[in-house]
């Protein structure tokens, strides 16, 4: 039915229960029902990448997944990338390389990059470029973002993480 249905979602290691309409996207559910407003919505039709979250280890557009489809999945949002109040190594690299200005696209870049590095821990610069080609940033011109991801990959390989 179009009526609300009760849904259990596993987000950033916490199990949440909420009521959603079938038409509610995962992005809206995260933001409005779970108050996880780090996930941003830009185009809402799968083009800009701002709403990217990690579902069962894979980068996914949360504007193109209905919350009801995410039942039983393990979801990681930008809020789940760092363990505590400190930044993750990738977030710190974005800071160090000036890889953000307004910050609107940043959560999508971070989740895209995190999923990418888990699949390809030692990427070439070209592979990084290709990996973020589905995310749009209007401020930085991408080069600092690529630098930050390449740097994170290098540091992780050196430290054996």
């Amino acid at each position: 039915m179009t009526a609300d249905r009760r849904l259990t979602l596993h987000v950033n290691g916490i199990t949440h229960s909420c009521e959603v309409e079938p038409r509610m996207t995962l992005a809206d559910c995260l933001r409005e029902k779970l108050d996880l407003t780090g996930t941003h919505l830009g185009c809402e039709h799968g083009v800009c990448g701002a709403c990217t979250v990690i579902v069962d280890g894979a980068a996914v557009r949360s504007c193109l997944m209905f919350a009801v489809q995410a039942r039983d999945s393990m979801i990681t949002t930008v809020e789940g990338l760092a363990a505590s109040d400190t930044l993750s190594d990738l977030q710190q690299a974005f800071h160090d390389h000036f890889a953000l200005q307004c910050g609107f696209c940043t959560p999508g870049f971070l989740t895209t990059a995190e999923a990418f590095l888990s699949e390809n821990p030692s990427p070439t610069r070209g592979e990084v470029q290709s990996a973020i080609s589905g995310n749009i940033c209007r401020c930085t011109g991408y080069v600092p973002i690529i630098d930050a991801i390449v740097d994170t990959a290098k540091r992780r390989l050196e430290s054996g993480k």
């Binding site: 990448g49 894979a58 996914v60 557009r61 895209t112 999923a115 990418f116 080609s133």
Partner: peptide
């Protein structure tokens, strides 16, 4: 095809 996030789904 498109981008990785699209290919995943």
């Amino acid at each position: 095809i498109a981008h990785r996030a699209v290919r995943n789904r």
